[in-house]
Design a protein around this nucleic acid. Structure first.
Length: 295
DNA sequence: CGGCTTTGACCGGCGC
DNA sequence: GCGCCGGTCAAAGCCG
């Protein structure tokens, strides 16, 4: 094989790789769009909740722990955040969640619907801090601690609890999900397959000491070229994001599917944690291979 | 000795 | 009104 053929082949393979990466980039960009849309919607719900609370005419909304009869309502106007923390601890009485704050335990109770005791904590980092925390082991999987935070800290910390979680958890603790501003189903049976949970898991896992270094992807909108996802209006994105599409039809031919089906397929892919993990690995491999070939 | 945990008692909301 | 239940209080004990 002469040098010219070799270089031509190499260029073709690189072009193919570039095309593949462009596609991956578009998929990731779409995921980002869907995520930010959901985030805005949640912020809207939170603002509504704040207005309701300041009116003073409403009763305090019941939380997940208040009564499970309400737990299918979404969203509920309160300032609760719920974290599901995986712990390897064998000690079922250990209800300590290391989240970077200092907590003072003021009570423990065994509740009706869960044989594991629930511990009540108050933030002791600043005097008069109104934040409370409840920690209880999940009934379905007792290796999971469910931590519910109520209120907002009245003192400065380096970051919000969710972010702090991701940077301060030790090897025994790993966030597998978190819900902010609304009441989620409890206990979570395999909740980490849901998209918003995946976001948190990935956040936590990228900062884990044992995980590979974070991959930086160019998610900026590429000028000039249009794509199907950019043409979607917000409502379409919402509909797509909310649509529970089966993840089992991954072998369809993308080129022959109508646009709508293609969009639904992409949405289903973006909801699939296995897909996103595999995608991230593939991108990382591409970068590594590229670096290896072109040091 | 101060700060924290433990734990039984108490309180208030809710349903019947 | 009564009982149930979740949330909180507070005294006692523990620990560094």
């Amino acid at each position: 094989m002469d040098a010219r053929t070799y270089h031509q082949n190499k260029m073709e393979s690189l072009q193919a790789e570039l095309e593949s990466m462009k596609k991956e980039n578009e998929t990731l960009r779409f995921m980002l769009q869907v995520t930010s849309k959901k985030c805005k919607r949640l912020e809207g719900y939170l603002k509504e909740g704040s207005l309701l609370e300041t009116n003073g005419t409403q009763k305090r909304p019941r939380t997940t722990f208040d009564n499970n009869k309400n737990n299918n309502q979404f969203p509920v106007a309160n300032k609760t955040s719920q974290f599901f923390v995986k712990t390897d601890s064998k000690d079922n009485n250990n209800l300590i969640v290391k989240d970077g704050y200092q907590w003072r335990k003021y009570g423990q109770k065994v509740t009706k619907d869960n044989p594991f005791p629930r511990a009540y904590f108050r933030c002791s980092m600043a005097p008069g801090c109104p934040v409370k925390k409840k920690v209880q082991r999940s009934m379905e999987d007792n290796s999971i601690l469910v931590a519910t935070y109520e209120g907002q800290h009245n003192h400065d910390t380096c970051c919000s609890s969710g972010q702090y979680f991701s940077s301060s958890l030790d090897d025994d603790h790993e966030i597998i999900a978190f819900n902010k501003g609304y009441v989620a189903n409890f206990p979570p049976t395999d909740n980490h397959h849901h998209d918003h949970n995946n976001q948190t898991r990935s956040t936590a896992s990228t900062t884990s000491p044992s995980s590979p270094p974070p991959i930086t992807l160019d998610l900026s909108l590429s000028g000039g070229s249009t794509n199907n996802y950019q043409e979607l209006n917000n409502r379409e994105i919402e509909v797509l994001a909310d649509h529970q599409y089966s993840c089992n039809n991954k072998s369809i031919n993308l080129n022959k599917k109508p646009k709508k089906e293609l969009e639904e397929y992409v949405t289903s892919l973006t909801k699939d944690r296995n897909f996103t993990v595999a995608l991230a690995k593939a991108v990382a491999r591409s970068f590594n291979a590229d670096l290896h070939h072109h040091p």
